[in-house]
């Protein structure tokens, strides 16, 4: 049993479990699923009163901060009790070939060390991936009023047009990063 759980979980097991977070939060906490609002709560707690957007009682977001902390703890349990962080992710042959073409050949772990490590932070590619990538995720999620959980899952579950527009934007941006920005960043170094 434990050995099975320590393997990567197939999408048809993990997907429904992610879907069940929607009723779990509604029934247990009485709240709509969404992660990125917790970023807003943290900003409001740290720099209060400066801007209208952050001028609210962030304590109303206690449940979101607890939920976020839970995700951190869950991540830790997933790579200790339930497996390791060093397993190779079994992506498709086509993606392996494309990434090799960009110079990413070491696929140990959940992400490439060439881009996402303290060492990489000093290179242009690593800095853009980590710092600019993180910045755009935060800025974009709040401008769009939600991220993958709030729009792609909660918003589509409740069949809302704004969320469909946001998800189309997610893919438009992701395609630009994948096919234009990353090759420009990584291609030049080869």
């Amino acid at each position: 049993m434990l050995e099975t759980l320590q393997q990567p979980w197939p999408w048809y097991v993990a997907g429904p479990l992610i879907g069940l977070v929607v009723p779990a939060l509604l029934l247990l906490v009485g709240k709509a699923f969404g992660v990125s609002t917790s970023f807003r709560d943290i900003c409001a707690a740290v720099t209060p009163g400066r801007f209208e957007y952050l001028n609210y009682d962030w304590r109303s977001g206690w449940w979101r901060l607890a939920f976020a902390l839970g995700i951190v703890v869950g991540g830790a349990l997933a790579v200790t009790a339930l497996g390791s962080a060093n397993a190779v992710v079994d992506i498709s042959e086509a993606t392996r070939a494309d990434l090799a073409g960009l110079g990413i050949t070491d696929r140990t772990g959940l992400f490439p060390e060439e881009l996402l490590s303290w060492r990489a932070l000093g290179s242009i590619g690593g800095f853009v991936t980590i710092v600019l990538g993180g910045f755009l995720v935060g800025f974009g999620a709040r401008w769009a009023g939600g991220c993958t959980s709030g729009h792609a899952i909660m918003g589509l579950v409740t069949r809302q047009l704004p969320s469909l527009l946001a998800v189309l934007g997610f893919f438009a941006g992701g395609l630009i990063s994948t096919f234009i920005i990353l090759p420009a960043l990584l291609g030049g170094g080869r």
Partner: peptide, 19 residues
Amino acid sequence: YWMGGTVFGLGWGLLGACP
């Protein structure tokens, strides 16, 4: 929604991680 979504997607594509 779509402008912010596109900015978010740019970041998601680079970082490979959403919130």
